[in-house]
Structures are given as structure tokens and as C-alpha cells.
Design a protein around this nucleic acid. Structure first.
Lengths: 201, 201, 201, 201
DNA sequence: AATGAATGAGACTTCATTCAT
DNA sequence: CATGAATGAAGTCTCATTCAT
């Protein structure tokens, strides 16, 4: 007696996830070109051929992985949208970014990795460029709300800080004082501190 | 009339440079794995075989390219060391970073690209990690000199800003308001502004 | 109410026929190597696995398809044997060949296709070679009966005409004036015309 | 010291020919799909990879092989155009076709083979369809000149005879009385016999 | 009897590297 | 010093076949 449709669907879903997860990790670690389907298959504990039962090409698999990143971005945006107070929004943005960075380090590694791989660039930009733009706009809007003088420039700077920190953290990992920096950043962009200088008085 | 030894040596140097330059451009554009020796040879106007006369392997060529990046870093450091006034040092660091970013965009693209490719990572870190550390230390030292309250954290933040801006500029290029951001940053880290808040009073 | 043995057997036969028909069509269209078991299964509306329930291998399936062609030949031979008058036999041979060509174009396409594929060649020859020989002999016998001067050579020529026409029709299909040629051929091999020249007098 | 351009060119030409020849033989024997690049490389005594130095894909190689066939056709047409007398033209066409069939059997095998391979069909028709049309037209023109009553139909018949004979010869080879048939055909289409019936008077 | 997930061999293709000249 | 033909390993992808359910 054949398996039910549901059983098959479950099997498929499970295997597909396994492939995606391992592809994400490996792409993040070794880049798109540097990762072979064989690598992914072995890492996922399946045969090379099976990967093609789920993704019609390595490229297609990459696009699916990109969509995972997009979803991660979406989760960030949704969480931010649930917060109305602009100061809390700022705090949340910093907290979430760094938390996600620590938790899903590979996501960010992949995100940055993909951003510089020409085979991926266009798709990466189509899929992620919007998220970046939305994020910039969001920061800008917050800055307008709280009364920052140069919201456009300041949004670029906060954006740069967040991605710059991610960049350094991914590169240096164990050596980077991520928690210290996070605490400091939260304070710096806190309501009470936003009006003070970074210099001693 | 046979060429003198010196002439030969000069030719060799010239050919080597041509290979390195083209390798740099192509690695930056298409990644390490995405660039073939043939691509590089064609781009440099020489034969595949000749490239192996100058570099014993593709890997070796990559290491040499990495050294070019290191030299670029060195030039930045040397320029900074020639300046004693800490405020001017800060200004110079921002100016030079962004100027180099615009002028030698490919350097940075490659730098970031390599930073995420595991075949390259270790070497990239060995060669560039130190530079990064030196830069962080330099910023920290400047901040100490001018009396910033939290020099360690602030150095991480300025470092993040500079690399974050580079990151966004490389990704968005034509759309990114690099000049506006540069001007703003210079003002923000100027002697007169370092003591003011980013909020309207 | 459980099905009777006979009903089961009938179902099996029906499924088998469905597979064979679709295999024939696809082999004819895309060649043996160009057709996958999956293609056939999908086309027949069954699962890949089930196809192996009926044919132990793709090769085995192909042999079964070849047998279908053999049967088609047999039908032609049987129809011819039912006719005694040699002139009518000739007419019938031409009519039937061209009718079958138009009706079961795929049969012929496959027949010719298989004739040139070495994986299939031996079997194709074993199975079809005899039919061809029988047909040649039959034509020869007819020509002897009606008093053709060189029955051996003329039988090769009529054989060549029939297969040549099939060849051109399959290749050119819509452009080939099959009906005109058929009419002309029937006249040319008609009792009354067999004694006249093909030149104007 | 590097080889001269001429030396390289010679090497290339020689290897390319070797590949083409072996590809022709193997495609003719085992079909396009049935022949692997590895088969061809081994048969040509070169490495798999080298084949791609000469043909950018298996498909491209096939097209080149098709062009060889086209050239063979051209040679036939050119030889025919050098003859003005229509009767001699007919004789020549029959002679040449059968001579080429015997000499370059693989060409014809491939020609027929390709005509039924869907991966090849379109190209085969583009490249060979014209030749076929030209040949039909040529025969028709000859028949008009010599005063055949139904030149269109008779040209289809002679065309069918020639391709039908080729077909049977390729399939049966050693068993097929090709010389007998050739002699008979030459007589049948000779000036003196064209006005007589194929029946005993 | 029936399904389609899974395997593994083998096909096409690319490319770093070697080498004869 | 310089060339590009040639190799072979490795990568992408396909597909006949098996098998658990």
C-alpha cells in the first residue's frame, strides 16, 4: 500500500528543510561557487541526486536560500512594526539585530557573502535590496519622529554601524566584544543619551 | 642588441603587475572561484602558461593580490602616521577611507569578498586582520587623546561606520549618497562638533 | 465486493497497454535514450514504480514496443494473404502501406528510429528483419506471377519506393504530397499501366 | 620558444578533424544521445576535456558533424551541375548516390539517424532539408527535360527509390544486392529504356 | 497493486595545471 | 621568455532502478 499523500508531503518537507539548512551553512561558510552540491548532500546526509529532486539546479537552491534570508529580514521588520514608541523601536532594532547576529550568525555571513558574489548579486539585490531600503527608511522615520536634526545622514550612519558591527563580528567572532558594543550602542541611542555629546563635558 | 639584465627585470616586473592588476579586478568582480586563470591571462593580454611563470598557482596569485590590499592599508596607515594632531588624524582617516573607497572601489569589494570565502579566509585574516586591529587601536588611541569617554566602544563604532559605509556603497554604488555621508561624518567627528549631541536642543 | 481474478487480469492488461502506447509515442518522438521512464509513466498517468511492475526494465519495455511494430507488420501480411489476385495484392500493398503510414505515423517513425540505434539495432533486426524479408519475397512472388521481367530487382525497387516514401513523408509530413504520390503509384502499378512506359510516346 | 601560429593551427586542425571523424562514426552507429563525449574522446585518442577545446558543447559538435553531411551533399550537387546532358545527369545521380553510399556509408547512416532524433531534427532539417528539396527539384527538372509525363510524381518516386535503397542497404549491408540493384536502376533510367514498360511485352 | 522518495552510476562541462616546442 | 594544446579531477545534473510503506 502506498504512503498517503500526507506522509509523502511530510517526508518531502523534512528533507527539503535539511537540504536548505545545510546549503545555508555551507554557502555562508564557503560561498556559492565554493560549495558543491556534493558538499551539501553529504552534509545533509542524502545522495547528490536527491538534491535535484527538490531543487532543479544549484542556482535554484541558492534562490531558495536567499528567500530564507528574506524571511529573516521580514521577521525583524514585523517585530519592529509591533512597537510604536520610536525610542523603544530604536532599542529594539539594535537588540534584535545583534541577537539575530549571534543566534543566526550564518544568516548574516551568507547575506554579506552573497552581496559580493557576482553570480548571486542581482538576485541578492532584488531580494534583499528592498529590505535594506525599508530598513533605512524605517530608521529615518524613527529619527524624524524623535527629532534628530539630520535624519537621512543619521540613518545611513546607524545602518552602517549595524552592518559594520555585523561585519566585524563575523570576521573576528570570538575576539569581538559584541556584548560590550551592544550595551554601549543601546545606551548611545537611548532616549536619555540621544541629546548628549560623545565627548566629556 | 640584447637587452640588459635590468631591462629584462623591468619587463618581468611590468608583466607581473599587469597580471596582478587584472587578477584584482576580476577577483573583485567575479570572486576567486568565479575567475579562471584563463580569464586573468586574457584580461592581462598574456598566455595562460605565462601566468604560471610568475605565480606558481592560482592560490599563490591570490595571496599576492591580498598583499596588494595590505599595501593599500599600509599607505593609509602611513598617511595617518604623518599627521600628529589627533583631530586632523580623525578627519584624515575619514577622508582617506572614503576617497580610497571611491577611487579603488575594487580593492574594497575584493577585501570584503575575500573576507567571506573560506579558501581565502585564513590568509585574508592573517594578512588583513592585523591591519584591522592596528586601525582599531589607532582610532582608540586618537579617541583617548581627544578625551572621548569610552574610547574602546567608540573606536568599534567608528570602525563599524567606516566599513558599514563601504559595504553599503559597494552594494548600492550609484544610489548611495556617499558625498553627503562623507561631509556629514567629517562634521560629526570634527573638533567643534564632537562635544554636541545629535539631537536638536 | 472483491474483484474477480478476471477483472484484475483485465485491469493489468489495460494498464500494460497504456504504458506500451505511451512508450511507443514517446520513443517515436524523442528516441529511446531521449525518453525517460518517468516521461512514460507520467504520460501513461501512473507512477514510475508501477511501470516496473509491468516491465522489468526500460530495455524490456522497448522490446515489447518492438513487438507491437511486429504485430503491425503481421496485420499487413495477413491482409495481403487474404487477397489472391496478384494485381489486387499489389494495389493492396501500396494502399495499406500508405494508409498505415498516415494512420500510425508513429509506428513508422519509431521503426526507422530504432533501426539506427545500436542499443536497439540487433533486436530491431531480429524482430523486423524477417518481416522485411518476407515482404520482399512477397513482392517478388507477385512480380513473378504477373510476369515482371526482373522480379528480384523490381521487388527491391518497389520496397525501396515504399520505405523511401515513408521516410520522406515522416521527415516532411505536412509538405509531402502523399495523396498525389499514392494515386500515382497505384496507377503505375495497376494492371493496365504495368505494361506502359513512364515516357511520353 | 613558443610554437608558431602555423604550427598551432596545424595541430588544431588535425585534432579537430580527428574528433569530427570519430564523432561522425559514433553518432552514426549509436545515435546522438547514445554517444558520450567520452566515447568520442576515447575513440579519437584524446582526453574528454580536450574535446571542449574544440567544440563548446556536444550539441555544437553535432552541428559541425551535420555540416560535414551538408558538404557531402554539396559535392553531389556540384558533380551533377557539371554535367549538362539530362540523361547523363540521371545516370550520374544514381551512380554517385550509390557510390557515396558504399564509400561513406556512415554519412548516410548518420543522415538517416539524425533525421529521426528529435534533439537534432530541427537542425537536421534546416541543414539537410534544403538539400533534399534541391535534389527533388533537380530530378524534376531532368524529368521535364527528357519529357517524362508526370515529372513531379516521378521525381518523388526516384527520390524514394534512392533513399529507400540507402535505407535497406544500411540496415542489411552485406546481404543487400546493392550492385545488382545499381546496374538495374541504371538500365531502367537509361535513355533507351525510359520509354519501355517494366512488363514483358 | 501503487506510490514517489532515494540512490548511484554516468553523462556533460569547466578549469587548474603541465608541457612540448 | 612565451604559447596554447592537452590532461584529469571535480563539479553540475539526469535517470534507470530500488524500496519502504
Amino acid at each position: 500500500m502506498p504512503r498517503t499523500e500526507e506522509q509523502f508531503s511530510e517526508m518531502r518537507e523534512k528533507t527539503k528543510q535539511k537540504i536548505l539548512e545545510n546549503a545555508l551553512l555551507l554557502f555562508a561558510e564557503k560561498g556559492f561557487k565554493g560549495t558543491s552540491i556534493n558538499d551539501i548532500a553529504k552534509s545533509a546526509g542524502i545522495s547528490k541526486g536527491l538534491a535535484y529532486n527538490y531543487f532543479k539546479s544549484k542556482y535554484d537552491l541558492m534562490i531558495s536560500v536567499l528567500k530564507l534570508i528574506e524571511e529573516e529580514f521580514s521577521r525583524l521588520l514585523i517585530a519592529l512594526n509591533n512597537e510604536n514608541d520610536p525610542y523603544k523601536k530604536l532599542t529594539l532594532m539594535i537588540t534584535l539585530t545583534i541577537e539575530m547576529l549571534q543566534r543566526d550568525e550564518k544568516f548574516w555571513s551568507l547575506y554579506m557573502n552573497f552581496a559580493f558574489q557576482s553570480e548571486v548579486k542581482e538576485e541578492a539585490q532584488n531580494l534583499m535590496g528592498d529590505s535594506l531600503k525599508i530598513l533605512f527608511n524605517l530608521i529615518e522615520k524613527i529619527f524624524v519622529e524623535v527629532g534628530v536634526k539630520n535624519p537621512v545622514e543619521e540613518s545611513k550612519i546607524l545602518g552602517a554601524i549595524l552592518d559594520g558591527i555585523s561585519f566585524h563580528y563575523i570576521i573576528e567572532k570570538e575576539k569581538y566584544p559584541i556584548d560590550k558594543v551592544k550595551t554601549y550602542l543601546l545606551q548611545k541611542y537611548s532616549k536619555s543619551e540621544l541629546s548628549k555629546s560623545i565627548l566629556q563635558e
